[in-house]
């Protein structure tokens, strides 16, 4: 089983944040883009040594996402923590090494995070048209699920990066 160090994963999260803030937007599709940090949080929850590590790692990655955002600090931390908690609850019945599992987990987690974040932004800042919310959420979830499989595969193969 893959095990990771929370510190190394956080470092990888910082690199992923830099990537999200620079190059990733140029590869967006219809305004939606893949969520690399969320993919890392899914990895953190799926392959955690215990639930405490999984929760802490997901939360730290969420805080990192908040650092690069104009939104309130703690929102993504809370959402990533929620996603991580659900994964930790059900991972006993999941075959976590399977790409299909990783794909499904990332898709559902991306839908949850994007949808709730959109609702919070709509309430606190200004209305986002429902068409934009649905379209961007689904497209972003698909892209996130798409990049999750290679990211998790790379992390499972190159264990020195996270162990």
């Amino acid at each position: 089983m893959v095990k990771y160090s929370t510190g190394k994963l956080a470092l990888l999260g910082a690199v992923a944040l830099a990537f999200e803030l620079t190059l990733l937007e140029t590869w967006s599709l219809g305004g939606a883009r893949a969520e690399v940090l969320l993919s890392l949080a899914c990895f953190a929850a799926l392959f955690a040594r215990d639930s405490a590590q999984g929760l802490l790692a997901s939360w730290i990655i969420g805080v990192m996402k908040d650092v690069g955002s104009a939104g309130p600090l703690g929102l993504h931390a809370l959402l990533f923590l929620g996603a991580g908690w659900v994964v930790l609850q059900i991972r006993q019945i999941l075959f976590r090494e399977s790409p299909l599992t990783q794909l499904g987990v990332a898709f559902v987690a991306a839908c949850w995070v994007n949808l709730v974040a959109a609702i919070v932004v709509s309430i606190s800042v200004g209305g986002i048209p429902i068409g934009v919310v649905v379209g961007k959420t689904l497209l972003s979830a698909l892209l996130t699920a798409g990049i999750t499989v290679p990211i998790h595969f790379a992390l499972m193969q190159a264990r020195w990066m996270v162990k």
Binding site: L17, L21, T22, V67, S69, G71, V121, S140
Partner: peptide, 14 residues
């Protein structure tokens, strides 16, 4: 410095 925001629902640059 950065042309985008990490949140998909906020649009900002640094």
């Amino acid at each position: 410095v950065f042309p985008t925001d990490s949140s998909p629902w906020r649009k900002s640059l640094t």
